[in-house]
Simulated scan of single mutants.
Amino acid sequence: MRKKIAAILTGIFLSIFSMTAVSQAQPTIHSGLNVKQQGIVTIAAFTAKGDLERLKTALNEGLDAGLTVNEIKEILVQMYAYCGFPRSLNGINTFMNVMKEREAKGIKDELGREASPLPAGKSSIELGTEVQTSLIGAPASGAIYTFAPAIDEFLKGHLFGDIFGRDNLDYQSREIATISALASMNGVNNQLRSHFNVGLNVGLTEAQLRSLITVLETRVGKQEADNATGVLNNVISGRTR
């Protein structure tokens, strides 16, 4: 009798354990983005918004999720191309303070690797042209580049050559950061639309992009998420015609 009761109790325990395990696993399975990528979303979004208190929390969460120190530095540096030097510098200063606090607590974070030197014998513009073309799927063209050739040169040489050409952050991670930053800013839907397309070009799935928007809704704001959803819906509709 005792053996039967023990067996029944064991079965109940295993069933509860299995249901709990499945329940805990579901956010990861269905979220689209892994925890490190979700960390990139909030770090980029709060840097772009200039919300340093919430950025501090996001930086700690990103490190705890497994982002390396150099990966986060790279995200914060890249942000200046999209939300300006002031917010990028404020983000870097916030990260410096976070690192000091964590070191004082005895927390050892993984440094991660530095970027490799840019290819020898190739100018930043040449490299950037290659990178830009691969990201958007065709050579960049348009009236804006004819009207202001300098912006074409700066985009190719600096953004896509000097920044995107650094290999210590992959293109998917860079696009997650860029999309998250743009989605957190007002009046940049044209650029957000372009980078949703680039994100799909570099292998991010629709599910991952919708997961990114879910992170924005739960952590940043419903208005930002609703706007991003509308832009993404237009992008997906345009690509499936």
Rank of each mutant, 00 (worst) to 15 (best):
T68C: 13
K105F: 02
S141R: 12
P86T: 02
Y82P: 02
E61C: 07
T94C: 06
L127C: 08
A104D: 15
V131R: 15
G137Y: 03
K122A: 12
S134G: 05
I92S: 01
E61P: 05
M99A: 02
I107L: 13
L59Q: 09
G84E: 10
I75Y: 02
T68L: 09
K56R: 09
L55I: 13
I136F: 10
K73S: 09
E103L: 14
E126L: 01
K108C: 03
R87N: 10
A140H: 06
Q78A: 08
A140P: 03
Q78M: 07
K73P: 06
R113V: 11
E110H: 02
V77L: 15
L67H: 02
L89R: 01
F95S: 02
L111H: 05
K73N: 13
I125S: 12
A143K: 14
I75D: 09
S141E: 15
S123E: 13
S116R: 02
G84C: 12
Q78Y: 02
G121N: 05
G106T: 10
Y80R: 02
K122Y: 05
G137M: 15
I107M: 07
Q78L: 11
E114H: 03
R87I: 10
D64A: 15
S134P: 01
E110V: 10
L63C: 08
I75V: 15
A81Y: 01
E114I: 03
A65C: 11
N70W: 08
S134I: 00
G142V: 12
L63Y: 03
N70D: 12
Y82F: 15
E71H: 04
N90K: 13
D109H: 03
Q132F: 02
P117C: 14
I107C: 12
F95G: 01
I75H: 09
V77Q: 09
A104S: 15
A143R: 06
E130A: 12
Y82S: 06
E110R: 00
V69F: 04
L118M: 09
K56P: 03
T57G: 07
V98I: 12
E130Q: 03
G121R: 04
T129I: 10
M79P: 02
K56C: 08
I125C: 05
L111R: 13
G112H: 08
N97L: 11
L118V: 10
T129W: 05
L67K: 07
M96R: 13
G62F: 00
L67N: 04
E61V: 14
L127S: 07
K56W: 06
T133K: 13
F85T: 11
S141F: 04
N93M: 15
S141Q: 15
D64V: 09
L59R: 03
E103M: 08
R113T: 11
L59N: 05
I107R: 08
A81H: 03
Y80T: 01
L111W: 00
G66M: 07
T57P: 04
L89H: 05
E71A: 10
E130D: 15
L127R: 08
M96T: 14
S134F: 05
V98M: 07
I107G: 01
A140Q: 15
